[in-house]
């Protein structure tokens, strides 16, 4: 039960302002989700380079974690600290070893996301505070997805905050409530997936990653979810090059899109668009149920 915002920039000139525009949109969704907030910002690196977001870094673990990381990537990587998250940049060949390093590090450190473009931040508290903590306003990029959460059946924790990332450069945010996520989680676990939380949204993210890992395209995976996911949902899904939107057949959780020559914006309410440039002349519409909307930067 939440607020969602998303911003996909068509006009590269706006890229330096991505974080600023996203943070304004996110702030308007505070009442919809005062418990926690999170956002994914995409900014693709050069080919062969990857980045990984890791959370749960404390002043005590920062030093040893960084030293181990640099040793592992042979001094070629960089590490950018943002509050208790770090973004590691490294050559793609180190991906598997680095995942193991993060997994085994302990001390509350957790993997958040990895890929060529994604950076993913989330925290407990008012959306405004979460955004400020990580310096969202100053971030640039090609597209971003944000979420404010009012916890329903699962706990108010950082792990339970959205977005959920369950595959490379993938993330998902959700507003609604799935009614068959427990069965689906058990099926996906049998398929080899693992889940961090009891959250229904993580199951939706895992489901899409599972289908993508079998070679399906994003729109195919989303179409399949209409049959396999039951309940009420609005999903916004991020990928390296763009984002997609899907609403369930009943479609009673709010969703609205705005499109101009410069951008496509998604939000739970019109109010989130109020400060976007050129919004007065945007094409504003509500996504239809069961229809996949998809925008991407042609690779």
């Amino acid at each position: 039960m939440c607020g969602i915002v998303g911003l996909f920039l068509k006009n590269p000139a706006l890229q330096p302002e991505l974080g600023l525009l996203t943070s304004r949109m996110l702030r308007t969704m505070t009442e919809r989700g005062p418990d926690s907030a999170g956002f994914a910002v995409y900014n693709a690196l050069a080919a062969g380079q990857r980045k990984m977001t890791v959370r749960g870094i404390t002043p005590e673990t920062q030093g040893p974690f960084e030293a181990g990381f640099l040793e592992l990537v042979g001094g070629t990587g960089t590490l950018l600290q943002r509050h208790d998250h770090v973004v590691l940049t490294y050559a793609g060949v180190h991906e598997a070893a680095l995942r193991a390093y993060v997994r085994d590090f302990g001390a509350g450190i957790a993997f958040a996301a990895s890929g060529e473009g994604i950076e993913l931040y989330k925290g407990v508290g008012l959306p405004e505070h979460v955004a400020t903590r990580f310096g969202l306003e100053g971030m640039g990029g090609t597209h971003a997805i944000g979420h404010t959460r009012m916890a329903t059946e699962s706990a108010v924790t950082i792990a339970g905050a959205h977005p959920f990332s369950t595959g490379p450069d993938q993330c998902l945010v959700h507003n609604g409530s799935l009614s068959n996520h427990n069965t689906l989680r058990r099926q996906l676990v049998r398929e080899g997936l693992s889940f961090e939380t009891e959250n229904d949204s993580e199951v939706a993210a895992g489901y899409l990653s599972w289908r993508l890992s079998r070679g399906e395209k994003l729109d195919e995976a989303l179409k399949a979810s209409i049959d396999d996911l039951d309940g009420f949902y609005t999903f916004v899904v991020g990928t390296r090059d763009g984002f997609a939107v899907l609403r369930d057949p009943v479609a009673c959780k709010p969703a609205v899109l705005a499109e101009t020559d410069d951008y496509v914006a998604f939000a739970s309410e019109y109010r989130a668009f109020a400060e976007l440039p050129g919004i007065a002349n945007a094409q504003v519409f509500e996504p239809e149920p069961q229809r996949v909307y998809h925008w991407d930067h042609a690779a």
Partner: peptide, 14 residues
């Protein structure tokens, strides 16, 4: 069985 103009706690608050 549901209210015609809201669903869930976020909309209920409004």
């Amino acid at each position: 069985c549901r209210h015609p103009d809201w669903t869930g706690p976020d909309d209920l608050e409004i």
